[in-house]
């Protein structure tokens, strides 16, 4: 089986939708102490009530640039940090006239009161965020956590797969599996060594760790599917596979487990507007049923997902995305 597009997505910016999986945000969650007497203004970061629409105006406390397109933002939002669970996402608005983009949470820390997103600057909004989101500024608006949290209880042995940016959102799941006592095999894939991030952080929550790069500059030369095959060869008792990354990578990943009948979970990030179940823009076909990724997901059984339908829908606004970037670059 050949997937020529696999792992080549990270630089193909103009073909990717702003609100697609590529703009994944990872929110990490630490021990979620129920230190209540909650800050009622949590969402507004202590701003006064009334009509000030400062809802998710969250101060950026840290930023890290992994490459010229991939960057991490850690922002202050104690209430969200306390509420977040692996697998959930947030919706971000970059500025007053901005669009609402869903980003999967990469990390969250209830003690520090921060939530972390890893973002790939692939379209107008994310490129603008790369420019304006600096430490000391605030993200215009963030709402979340949203979506049904991942189920990280149960499996004894699990493979957690992250493709490129997908490494960020799958990390909190791997950590939670580990904390729940599972044997965790991590498989991460990048085009080359220079694009890698979080490998140490990820490795620390894994019992086994496989790095795949297209050019062989780190780990094994190959795609994540090669890494998964390797893990499957070594273990005949895998309970679950969790794969997050671009749709083509998730599709390829779940095909490796289909012959073995291993439960395979993917996290879908279709185009959304409100993220609360109201618009239906994020509908996906799962086992021939219409599902809303924002409220029924974002996690679904990868063997049931109609990926070609998903990829077609992700292309829905492609001409507009191009126009938005051109317009923005033109000033």
């Amino acid at each position: 089986m050949s997937f020529p597009a696999l792992l080549h997505w990270s630089n193909s910016a103009d073909t990717l939708h702003e609100t697609s999986i590529l703009a994944e945000v990872v929110l990490a969650m630490n021990k979620v102490g129920k230190n209540c007497k909650t800050n009622r203004n949590g969402a507004s970061d202590g701003s006064p009530g009334g009509l000030e629409l400062t809802g998710g105006n969250c101060g950026i406390v840290a930023r890290e640039d992994f490459s010229d397109v991939t960057f991490l933002l850690e922002f202050h939002h104690p209430m969200m940090a306390r509420a977040a669970r692996p697998g959930q996402f947030v919706i971000v608005i970059a500025h007053e006239d901005g669009e609402r983009i869903p980003l999967t949470i990469a990390d969250f820390d209830a003690d520090k009161g921060t939530v972390t997103l890893v973002i790939q600057a692939v379209g107008k909004t994310t490129r603008q965020m790369q420019e304006i989101c600096q430490v000391g500024t605030k993200i215009h608006s963030v709402v979340g956590p949203m979506g049904v949290p991942s189920n990280t209880k149960g499996p004894k042995k699990v493979i957690c797969v992250g493709g490129g940016l997908g490494v960020a959102p799958v990390y909190p799941q791997a950590r939670a599996f580990k904390e729940n006592g599972a044997y965790v095999i991590g498989v991460i894939g990048f085009r080359s060594k220079e694009l890698m991030f979080w490998e140490d952080k990820f490795k620390a929550v894994c019992d086994e760790f496989i790095v795949c790069t297209d050019d062989g500059s780190e780990g094994i030369k190959g795609r994540v599917t090669d890494g998964i095959e390797l893990a499957l060869k070594g273990h005949d008792d895998i309970d679950e596979l969790v794969a997050i990354g671009p749709p083509i990578m998730m599709q390829a990943s779940v095909e490796t487990t289909r012959p073995h009948n291993i439960k395979s979970t993917v996290s879908l990030n279709p185009i959304m507007v409100d993220g609360t179940g109201m618009c239906g823009g994020c509908r996906v076909m799962v086992g021939n049923e219409l599902k809303f990724a924002c409220v029924d997901g974002p996690d679904f059984d990868g063997h049931q997902v109609d990926f070609s339908d998903l990829m077609n829908r992700l292309a829905r606004f492609r001409p507009d995305e191009k126009k938005a970037v051109e317009n923005w670059e033109g000033g």
């Binding site: 909650t38 998710g56 209430m79």
Partner: peptide, 18 residues
């Protein structure tokens, strides 16, 4: 509503944030 003293907090998804 604001004149009545009602506070409005946007970007709060009840059920998920709390």
């Amino acid at each position: 509503l604001a004149k009545l003293g009602v506070k409005i907090e946007c970007n709060v998804l009840i059920g998920r944030l709390f």
